[in-house]
């Protein structure tokens, strides 16, 4: 009963996100006055999504961190939270929702396709460091998603922006948003790795084992660091910085979702 309830809530949340996206599209592109409806539907979707996670948590007795369904749903929720906070607080950044809301419901769609199978908590999956580790990674993903959503608009040729996408905010503002959220993603990702290494020591007796996911995670963190370094000390900005951040986000996706599918890993035992 709880499993089907969780799935129904999840599908309802996805529908609400799609609805919010459509309204946002009308508001941004067609200049309709649908802001209130967009936000209401978006936040309703977030609440339904949170209820889906809580229902499954109660049903299986552990947090949403083990199976592919649970992980994707959690990443989607973190993305939706940060997206809705961003577009609620800063009206000028609402176009970012055109990337972030679809990202959330695509992740939800893949999660639903994977199915809410039940997995037991293995002996190594406990302790506060594991909780800190995953919460930091969920937050880092959300921050990186906001950064890349801003960067994707900046990366567009200026002619395209001015002729066909007049509703896109000023490139300078988006560039600064990408920089700040990219910095937040870097800090959260680094802290997540640190917390993960402490948990790994408790679980396996080593802080770092060059596990494929650990290695890709380190590469991603370093590329985010290079991005920040180039901006801070070599005055990178605009399109080339935006393109680098898009590449860094591709690495984020590879680290979190790709590596576990193609190689053996301590993480993929449970994630795939």
């Amino acid at each position: 009963m709880s499993m089907s309830t969780a799935m129904s809530l999840l599908v309802s949340a996805a529908v609400a996100y799609v609805g919010a996206f459509v309204l946002l599209l009308g508001e941004v592109v067609l200049k309709r006055h649908w802001r209130r409806a967009t936000l209401v539907l978006g936040w309703v979707g977030l609440v339904l999504h949170g209820a889906a996670i809580a229902t499954l948590w109660l049903a299986v007795g552990h947090g949403p961190i083990i199976t592919r369904y649970e992980n994707l749903s959690s990443y989607a929720w973190a993305t939706a939270v940060i997206a809705l906070i961003t577009i609620t607080r800063r009206r000028s950044l609402k176009p970012l929702g055109l990337f972030l809301l679809p990202l959330s419901f695509i992740l939800l769609g893949i999660a639903a396709y994977a199915g809410p199978e039940v997995a037991n908590m293995p002996p190594t999956f406990r302790g506060v460091w594991l909780v800190v580790h995953v919460v930091l990674y969920f937050s880092a993903f959300g921050a990186a998603a906001v950064a890349v959503s801003a960067s994707m608009f900046v990366a567009l040729p200026a002619a395209v922006r001015s002729m066909h996408m007049a509703w896109v905010p000023e490139a300078d503002e988006l560039d600064l948003v990408a920089y700040r959220y990219g910095g937040a993603a870097f800090a959260l990702w680094g802290a997540g790795m640190l917390a993960g290494s402490v948990w790994a020591y408790s679980a396996w007796g080593r802080y770092w084992g060059w596990d494929p996911i650990e290695t890709w995670s380190l590469v991603t963190w370093l590329v985010l660091g290079v991005y920040l370094h180039l901006r801070r000390f070599f005055a990178w900005s605009g399109r080339r910085a935006a393109v680098l951040l898009v590449i860094a986000f591709a690495l984020v996706l590879v680290s979190l979702f790709g590596t576990a599918l193609v190689s053996d890993s301590i993480h993929s035992v449970y994630f795939s």
Partner: peptide
């Protein structure tokens, strides 16, 4: 005598 539990160094 020490009880050692997995994940608790």
């Amino acid at each position: 005598q020490v009880d050692l539990v997995a994940n608790e160094p």
